[in-house]
Amino acid sequence: MKKRCGVFILFLLIPAVTLGGTLLFPARQYAWISLCVALLSCLPFFLTFERGEGAPARLILLSSLTALSVLGRIVFTPLPGFKPVTATVVLVALTFGGEAGFLTGSLSALISNFWFGQGPWTPFQMFSWGMVGWLAGRLSFPLKKSRILLSLYGAFAGVLYSAVMDVWTVLWADGAFNLSRYGAALLSALSFTALYAVSNVIFLLALGKPVGGILERVKVKCGL
């Protein structure tokens, strides 16, 4: 049932919204359609979580990890782009699985924007950080084994995040997806993309051992 619901959203609802959107609102409404798509793609994860069983300890732990990654974003505010959020989300996913990773990532985006300001970018951030977490959970076996792969994943996550957010920038400012504009946006954000990638690698290397260790300890301690 849970699965079917997710499949339903992924394969029916999203295309329907896209198609309906383009038909109903010709021209420049891609921005809003893409926004709906971003929101909808978060839904299956939220639904599974809502339906699932879990001890209070697990829920509170998720809250705590989410608050922690937001804390990271706030504490490192003076350094633009240099944030431990992605690293935290990845490490959570490696220990507690992809679902936890997705939730930590997407809820961190939602909550930190209560701080930094909500906007149409919120769903995109929720989706990007969530997916970074979910993917890390899927790839946890190799990522746990090798620090090199983990660093590579960090760099990849930085690029992915930047690329997704740039899609949004272009759609938002332009109404339609324009490849040359997208290229220009990517190029102008290149320094940021590089910063994301590098900072992710740094944070993953610096936090990987200690934080991973603490999370494992907690996992064992409360029998999750």
Partner: peptide
């Protein structure tokens, strides 16, 4: 410094979370 404090916070916050639960 911030990084070290962040790691300490991970430890403290998970401990705290268990208390809250």
């Amino acid at each position: 410094n911030r990084l070290r404090v962040f790691v300490a916070m991970v430890s403290w916050s998970t401990e705290n979370a268990m208390e809250v639960s």
